[in-house]
Design a protein around this nucleic acid. Sequence first.
DNA 1: TGTAATTCCTCTAGTGACTAGAGGTTCAAG
DNA 2: CTTGAACCTCTAGTCACTAGAGGAATTACA
Lengths: 141, 141
Amino acid sequence: MYSIGNLSRHTQVKIPTIRFYEDKGLLPRPDRTAGNQRRYDDTALKRLLFIRHCRDLGLPLTDVEGLLSLEGASGGDLNQAHEIAERQLADLRDRISRLRSLEAELTRISKACDGKHDHVCAVLHAFGDHNECAGPHAHSK
Amino acid sequence: MYSIGNLSRHTQVKIPTIRFYEDKGLLPRPDRTAGNQRRYDDTALKRLLFIRHCRDLGLPLTDVEGLLSLEGASGGDLNQAHEIAERQLADLRDRISRLRSLEAELTRISKACDGKHDHVCAVLHAFGDHNECAGPHAHSK
DNA sequence: TGTAATTCCTCTAGTGACTAGAGGTTCAAG
DNA sequence: CTTGAACCTCTAGTCACTAGAGGAATTACA
C-alpha cells in the first residue's frame, strides 16, 4: 500500500496531478485510511505509470482514457489502440517538420545582426517581417 | 481604417484573439466610432502582424511583449532581442530532438501488433511499459 | 506516551493562449 | 428605411495541470 506521496515518488507524477487524474476518472478512487487518506495498491501504480507514459508520448488525456477503456478488450476493439498510435505518430511527424522550418528561420533571424547592434537591429525587423520567411509556417502547437 | 473584422482578415488573427491582445496590452486601444466600434490603422496592422509572426515562431506572449517594448530602442537594449531569438532557438532544438525520440518509440509501438489483433494487442502493452523505450523521454511540451 | 515534523486533506484560484456563446447594438447595402 | 451582417461586452470553457490557504492525520523519535 502506498500513500499518495509514495505513489508520487514511484511514478514521478506530482501529488496534485494524481488527485487531478482521480477527479477526471482516469484513476479509480482509492481506499482511504480511517483518517481519510488515500492508500494505493500495485494496480493503481501500474495504471498511473501507463497514464504517465502515454502523456510523455504526447497523447491527450482523452486518448489515454480511450486506451484505458480497452483494457481486457480483444479483436476489433484493439484496432482503436492501433489507430491512436498511428494518429499520434502522424501528428508528431507533422510537428517535427514544422518545427524544423521554424528552426531554419530562427537561425536566420538570430544571425541577422550578429555583432552589429549599433543601429537598428535586424532581429526586430526579421521578427516582424513574415515575407522574409522561406515558406509559410503554422503554429507550432 | 479597418474594422476588427477587416483587420482579422488581413492578419489571419481571429477577432476574439485581437480583443484578447488588446486586453493584455499587446495592442494599443484603438479609436472607436461614434457607435463604439474599433477602427484600426496601418500601424496597428503592422503591430498585429509582428505579434502573429512571433507567435508562429513559438514565442510566448511575454517575450513578444519584450520585443515590442524594444521598438525604437538602440545599442545594448537590442541585445535583448538577440537573446530572445537565441533562447527560442535553443528551446526549439531541444524540442525537436525530444520529439524525434518519441517518433522512434511510437513507430515501434505502432508496428508492434501489425496485422495480428487476435490476442492481446502489443500496442497496449507497449504504451504501458516504459522500460521498452530506447531511452528516457520527457514531456513533449 | 508526548510532541514535533511531516504528510495529508479539501477547496479555490491561477496559468497560457485563446475560444465560444449569450444577449444586445451599430453599421452598410439596397 | 429596413434588413442582415458585423460589432459590442461579459462570462465561462478549454487543456493539463500547478499553487496556496487553512486545517487534520500520520510518523519518528525521545
